[in-house]
Amino acid sequence: MELPPQNLPFLFAAFAVAWIVFFAYAGYMSWKRQTAQRELRELSDEWQTQRNTPPENDGP
C-alpha cells in the first residue's frame, strides 16, 4: 500500500505563518496600548499641574 504524501514543509509553513501573524498583531496591539496609556497619564498630569498653577499676577 502506498503511503500518503507528507508535505511537511507546507504544513509547517501554514502553522508558522498563522502563529507569527497572531503573535505579531497581539504584540503590536499591546505595545501601542502601553504607549497610549503612558501618554494619557502624562497628559493628565500635565493638565492637573496646569490647573493647580495660579495665574500670573501682572500687578496694578
Partner: peptide, 27 residues
C-alpha cells in the same frame, strides 16, 4: 477565544487613543 481577545485589545487601544484626543482637545 483568540479573536475575542484581539478584538478586546483593539477596542481598549481605540478607547485610550480617543481619550488622548479628547484630553488634548479640552486642553
Amino acid at each position: 477565544m483568540l479573536a475575542c481577545y484581539l478584538v478586546m485589545e483593539r477596542m481598549m487601544l481605540r478607547a485610550a487613543e480617543d481619550n488622548i484626543t479628547e484630553l488634548r482637545r479640552q486642553q
